[in-house]
């Protein structure tokens, strides 16, 4: 059972960069763990900390200007490796949703499998939100999963977003794919006999 996801309203953390790859989200040298714990502290490690391991005061997670459980970032977020550690790190840090104009495929699945909602918005919505956040750190977004809408409080703009219905139900009910697949073992065996 995973945490159920319904509607969230929160201030946001902006990361106005494109093609943020999984090596930036969680560098490979931290992938040696055999559990899912502790990755939140390592999120964006090499941007967040300097060579001596001290917090880099200019990085958004350290600056203290922006807080919240929604990450807003440039297109093609999560490109690169298939490491689910990237989703564990973002969820482990406390984010519940990521807003971008598109996500890398494997990352998107990994996020959904960990109760982390990737919300795909238009370029316009994204650019406007990033601009607003630069000036008004208190700007809030509401993400309504059952209705599949995202609402920017400051601009008043509302957009609907796509999500595959099966994944939506999993997120809302806190189920995962394995629970479902396990209930279909006979269908799997019938397939194996057929081919």
């Amino acid at each position: 059972m995973k945490e159920r996801f319904e509607t969230i309203t929160s201030t946001c953390v902006p990361l106005p960069l494109e093609n943020v790859d999984t090596d930036q989200i969680i560098p490979a040298r931290f992938l040696k763990a055999t559990t899912k714990d502790g990755f939140g502290e390592l999120l964006f490690h090499d941007w967040r900390f300097d060579k001596a391991g001290d917090p880099n005061p200019d990085f958004v997670l350290n600056r203290g200007r922006h807080k919240g459980i929604i990450l807003v970032t440039g297109k093609n977020f999560g490109s690169g490796s298939s490491r689910e550690h990237a989703a564990w790190a973002i969820a482990g840090y406390g984010f519940r949703a990521i807003v971008s104009s598109f996500f890398a495929d494997i990352f998107k699945n990994n996020a959904l499998n960990n109760g982390l909602l990737p919300v795909v918005v238009s370029q316009l919505f994204l650019a406007e939100t990033l601009d607003l956040l630069a000036e008004f750190p208190e700007a809030m977004l509401t993400i309504d999963l059952p209705e599949q809408t995202i609402h920017s409080h400051l601009s008043g703009r509302v957009e609907s977003f796509e999500i595959n219905p099966f994944k939506k139900e999993c997120l809302i009910k806190g189920h995962d794919d394995i629970d479902y697949l396990l209930s279909r073992k006979d269908i799997i065996e019938a397939y194996e006999k057929r081919v």
């Binding site: 298939s82 490491r83 689910e84 989703a87 495929d105 494997i106 699945n109 990994n110 499998n113 960990n114 595959n164 099966f166 995962d176 794919d177 394995i178 479902y180 697949l181 396990l182 279909r184 073992k185 799997i188």
Partner: peptide, 23 residues
């Protein structure tokens, strides 16, 4: 042939299947 995350590795181990949208 395609890459998957760890949750999907677990799914494949347990059921030899994945739930996928056709790309």
């Amino acid at each position: 042939a395609f890459g998957i995350g760890t949750s999907e590795v677990e799914m494949t181990l347990a059921t030899q299947c994945l739930l996928q949208r056709k790309p």
